[in-house]
Design a protein around this nucleic acid. Structure first.
Length: 436
RNA sequence: GGGCUCGUAGUGAAGAGGCCUAUCACGCCUCCCUGUCACGGAGGAGAUCGCCGGUUCGAAUCCGGUCGGGCCCGCCA
């Protein structure tokens, strides 16, 4: 039976069987140390028998092997135990020298990101690199748990669509049996339809954007967390749900992965009980006053303002999370809800974390006739198959609702303190990269 | 789409007109080494300096083009 690296200490004195990859060799003459990597970590094996050492001659790191040996309590060994009297069996010999050093993390310097992704499959064999994606998995698991506890149903909606969904981002077009189809840039209209059935839904799925953006925060395929909840009285309820969820998930992940986050040089987490909310107009004023760059005429926040307001919120409110709220009506999308108390603004907040927008959290217009009016004002065809079924759901009763589009990759990036959203993605897609 | 930058062994870097027959580290190969864990020591292989053209007595180095990256802005969320 195979024993995993993490369980080695439970078998001291016994002969066990391990399986994994050759991760590191250190030949000291009559004594050889090798590290074998499995899914949990590393096991040190000590080999004295010359015939056993010879089995590894000419074989490179990455060779798949099994080792039978006696577990010895050894304070000098990493992890406090190691294997002696080893008998090796090579399952998959690797003779070609790997193009990168598995035991050494690849550079994450911007200039070297191309190499990082060129050898992604191999680079992920590095234990340090793996931590990024274990933390990502943990963030997602905690998000799912939080939303499930709050009575949300996880849904999956189609990514092949008959038309544009939001009318915002550029869409990828493709041939669908002779008909033109698009790749979903968001599950927006579907999740709203499903509020009519489940009240509370969420989806974690890719979204595709054909924008020619070449920045550290954009990709053409992104992982979106979409949440939508019905029967909310005011915008603050959605803002708080998404904000509270983020605080709770970050706290748990920072606790669970304290050691890994530290080794990745992640910043200390600074969050308050609630995410502070600041209206966009006020941010423009504060920023203009502080920097002298006049942004008061901007409809959205500039990237520099996003960074600035996050610093401000951290100092003033002790929170690395902050909401920019009350976006001006010039920036609104057709399905947004205009603020009834201030028709110049939209019930829409953006969640910012460590200088970057990670989620957009608006209320939706849920009255059929008003929505049709907004669509016609935007010059949209209400009979288009991409909108017809959405309007159908709206016509037969959707409660007041709101939700968010939340960038999972950006959350992972900022949680760890990486410099580029692509570093938080296993196989990123951008304007230059379609493989691996 | 606009601007700015960078391409040197497998990987990461140095060299910025002649000192380059291109330097260093890691990796790789051979040998030595019984407690390594960034093992150590001795030796070795590996680069027509992204590509094309130009300037010059002379180009990795300067100029133009081209291809491939990166960063910022815009677009976008």
């Amino acid at each position: 039976m195979r024993i995993l690296s993490s369980d080695l200490k439970d078998h001291i004195g016994k002969t066990v069987h391990i399986e994994g990859w050759l991760h590191k060799k250190r030949l000291l003459g009559g004594l050889t140390f090798i590290n074998v990597r499995d899914r949990r970590g590393l096991i040190q094996v000590v080999i004295q028998d010359k015939d056993e050492v010879e089995k590894l001659r000419g074989l490179q790191i990455g060779t798949v092997l099994t080792v039978d040996g006696k577990v010895v309590d050894e304070p000098r060994a990493p992890g406090g135990a190691e294997l002696h009297d080893a008998k090796l069996e090579v399952l998959v010999p690797v003779t070609d020298e790997p193009p990168i050093e598995i035991d050494k993390p690849l550079s994450h310097k911007p200039d070297n990101l191309d190499t990082l992704f060129e050898y992604r499959g191999l680079g992920l064999r590095n234990l340090q690199e793996q931590k990024v994606f274990k933390i990502r998995a943990s963030l997602l698991r905690n998000i799912r748990e939080y939303l499930t506890e709050h009575d949300f149903v996880e849904i999956q909606t189609p990514k092949l669509l008959a038309g544009a969904t939001e009318g915002g981002a550029e869409v990828f077009k493709l041939d669908y049996f002779g008909q033109e189809a698009t790749l979903a840039q968001s599950p927006q209209l579907y999740k709203q339809m499903l509020v009519g059935a489940f009240e509370r839904v969420f989806e974690i799925a890719p979204a595709f954007r054909a924008e020619p953006s070449a920045t550290t925060r954009h990709m053409s395929e992104v992982m979106m967390l979409d949440i939508e909840m019905g029967f909310i009285r005011d915008h603050g309820e959605v803002l708080d749900l998404v904000g509270d969820m983020t605080i709770s998930v970050l706290k748990k992940v920072y606790k669970e992965h304290a050691h890994d986050l530290k080794s990745l040089n992640a910043p200390e987490l600074v969050v308050a009980d609630k995410v502070p909310k600041i209206p966009v107009a006020e941010i423009h004023e504060l920023y203009t006053k502080a920097t002298g760059n006049d942004t008061t005429a901007e409809k959205d926040l500039t990237p520099d303002e996003e960074r600035w307001i996050c610093d401000y919120a951290k100092k003033k409110f002790g929170s690395e999370l902050v909401y920019a709220t009350d976006f001006p009506i010039e920036a609104m999308k057709f399905y947004h809800r205009v603020n009834p108390d201030d028709p110049k603004t939209v019930l829409w907040g953006d969640l910012l974390f460590r200088g970057l927008e990670i989620a957009t959290v608006p209320m939706r217009e849920n009255h059929h006739d008003q929505l049709v009016k907004q669509m016609k004002q935007a010059g949209m065809d209400v009979n288009h198959p991409g909108y017809k079924y959405f309007l159908q759901a709206m016509k037969y009763g959707l409660p007041p609702h709101g939700g968010c589009g939340y960038g999972v990759d950006r959350l992972v990036e900022k949680t760890i303190g990486l410099g580029n959203v692509k570093e938080a993605t296993l196989f990123p897609r951008d304007i230059n990269r379609l493989a691996p």
